[in-house]
Amino acid sequence: MCGLAAAWLIVCAAAAPAHGQYGAPAAAAPKPAGAITIASFNIQVFGESKMAKSQVVEVLARVVRNFDIVAIQEVRAKSDEIVPAFVRAINADGSRYHYVIGPRQGRTVSKEQYAFIYDTTRIEVDPSSVGVVPDPQNKLHRPPLHARFRTKITPAEMAFTFWLVDIHTDPDEVPQELEALTGVFQAMQAARPDEDDVILLGDLNAGPPEFKSFQRIPGVAWAVSGVTTNTRRTKTYDNLVFTRPATSEYLGGWGVLDLQSTFGLSLDQALEVSDHNPVWGAFYPAEVRGAGLPPMAGAAAPVRR
């Protein structure tokens, strides 16, 4: 476990206070054996015009390489080639990421897709688990994409398995959608008797003070609190929501990767990348039952509260 903190330095640096000065990370460091990092990133209007800007794609690729899984929101394109091309850019340095993507969704002709991009050397997805949460009452503008993942860096019988539920709420109906998402979370908890770990993550257009409906979920917790997550550093919109003790694999480490400070960008340059910063949480890569994590695992995680 001692190597855990050292190997996290790049990610931890990005998680330090938003106004700190950091150089851009070099190539992503080898990832630790003692943790996986799960991120959420709204890549605003991720389509042809953004992919045409090589400097933007390079920053986006470097962001993804820091994490084991990234839940993406706001793929907005007619083309089906945006995410495949992006994954090729990520893998240009020898990385081995792959993706799953959902259908186009939205009530108007302006549609969005969700995607999960994951490091295949450390994570695998159950292809049969990928789908859109049913929303027969049409309560959600863009019903979440769900998929079940498993870590590959621990023996299969011990591996941490979990649902990810990717969401981008409608900014004009946030309370109603958070209420609906409370039901979605509970439905996902009951979806499989052999899976107790549900991590709902994305652009909620709301921060913890607005999470009143989530409080009805026993043991609910969230990673990001007390900091801003948008690029302008004015709002807390993005988060990872789960329950404890069910997801006792959560190590307490989390952060906001500030695009400006991490990559040495001006505000306008950072806004060309996205109006959101990525947020992330760290999880133990093996299922934790009963007594919980060995003390060192939690202690080694970079805690920021």
């Binding site: 605003q44 209007v45 389509g47 042809e48 015009s49 706001e74 907005r76 394109a77 007619k78 108007t108 002709v109 302006s110 900014p171 109006d275």
Partner: peptide, 14 residues
């Protein structure tokens, strides 16, 4: 043009 529309929608959202 769909990219004009998408950026306009994104601007209006915020």
């Amino acid at each position: 043009d769909d990219q004009v529309r998408e950026w306009a929608v994104a601007a209006l959202e915020d």
